[in-house]
Structure formats: structure tokens, C-alpha cells
Amino acid sequence: MKKYFCSFRMGMKSEYEYRLNFIFVLFSAFFPMIIQTFLWIAIFENSKKPIVYGYTLNQMILYTILSQMIAKFLKTGVETEISTDVKTGGLSKYIIKPFNYLLYKLFGFVGKKAIHMEIILAFILIVLVVFNWKVQITMSIGRGVVFLVAVFLALILNFYIFCCLSMLSFWVTDAWGIFFGARFLIDMMSGAIFPIDIFGETIIKVFQALPFQYMVYFTVNIITGKISLHMALQGIGIQVIWILVLGLLTRYLWKRGLLQYVAVGG
């Protein structure tokens, strides 16, 4: 386990070096946030109902802000890293070493995110304090802890989704288009662009059978108070199940993929 903590520390150190970059990335999330906030204000002003898609205006604005932040925080580049390693033959230097490559990547990824976590939590705290001052939101220490656990599990879940996807690199020479397209689809299905409630019952049912909503939609709604603490705990259980399923699938594909691997340039 010690060697994986080294990877964790390496991830932390490298990200600390480029922490300003993450602040820029966060800043780029402000524009969709502003556009959507004013869009929702216009919709609620126009609507005669105080609740649209199951949200009050304040809940919707809070959702808009937090979903953009959480989506940026969860973002991974692991699929590109693994794909490059497979394509260039760089993977060879890892598979001869006495550690599990995928665990090495996971710990490195979590290490990077540990630095982002401080920035994102500070931001979320500011947003919540401002919102609590303006309007009352259902907040308690218990809900806060459940939220933190859900965010951490969402991070691991996101890692395994993209890690699983990256296994395609063993069969497809240049999979950047698949990764890029998948990112947009996953953003849509996870509730990162709009809450999935806008899609209508049939599509929501399909989304509920998939793991994506447990990344953004579920975690943000713990804070907005749209789901009860009991349902939040249930959701955490489902997150764990999806992590196990995707972890096992990734492991299976990794083993199959290695049989295909040709160390080009290695």
C-alpha cells in the first residue's frame, strides 16, 4: 500500500505546482453558470408556478452553481493518459514494475484532486453561507458529512467510468473522438449541464438505471435538500455498487487488453 501512497503524494505535488490552472478551469465554469442563472430567473419570473421541474428558484440557482463546480472538480484526464501510454508504448515501463498500474493511476488521481478539494470546498462553503444568509436551505452537519462522502465516491466512480472507457485504447488506435464525445454525453446524463429532471419521465428512468447521475445530480441534490437523508444514504450504497461493478469490468478489460498490447516504441 505504501507505494500507492507515493503515487498519491506525487499527484498532490504535481497538482500543487499547477494549482493556478485549476483556478482558471473553475473560472471558465462561471460563464455557463451566469447564463443558466439568468435563464432560470427569466423562466421563474415568467412562470406562474413557484416550482419548475421540482425546484424552487433558489434551489435551481444553487443547483446550477454547485453542479458546474462539482463537474469541474470530478473531471478526469485519466482516459487520455492511459490511451497515450498504450499508443506510444509508454505502458511498458509500468507493467514491468511490481505494482498495479490501475491502482497507481487511481491514487495519483485522488492525490491531484486532494489539492482541488481544498479550493472547491472553500468555494462551496462561500456559496452555502451566501445562500443561507439570503434564503434558508436544509443544512445540517449530518447532511454535510453525507455530501462529502458522496463527492468522494463520485470522484472514484468518475475515475472508473473513464478508466473503463480508456480500455478501448487497446483495440482502437486513436480513441480521442470517443473520449471527447463520451465526456459530453456523460455530462448530460450526470446532470452537469441541467438537472436530469428536464428530460421527462421516460428518459429519467433510463438515466436512473445508469451510474452517471450519481456523480453530479445526486451529490448536488444532497445539498439542495431535494432528497432526504435516508435517500442520500441509499444513493451512497448505489454509488458503492457501481464502483465495484465498474472496477471489476475495468480489471477484466485490462486483462483482455494487455493480451492485445503491442509495445510500440518500447
Binding site: I43, F184, L185, M188, I193, I198
Partner: peptide
């Protein structure tokens, strides 16, 4: 796919009759 994600804005506008 990028276009599809942007079309969600139009879908919301129509659904809510904004």
C-alpha cells in the same frame, strides 16, 4: 454531441414556455 448539449437550452425554453 456538443450541439446536442447546447440544444438542451432550447428544450428548456420550449418546455417552460418562457
Amino acid at each position: 454531441l456538443i450541439l446536442l448539449s447546447k440544444l438542451l437550452y432550447t428544450a428548456v425554453v420550449y418546455n417552460t414556455d418562457m
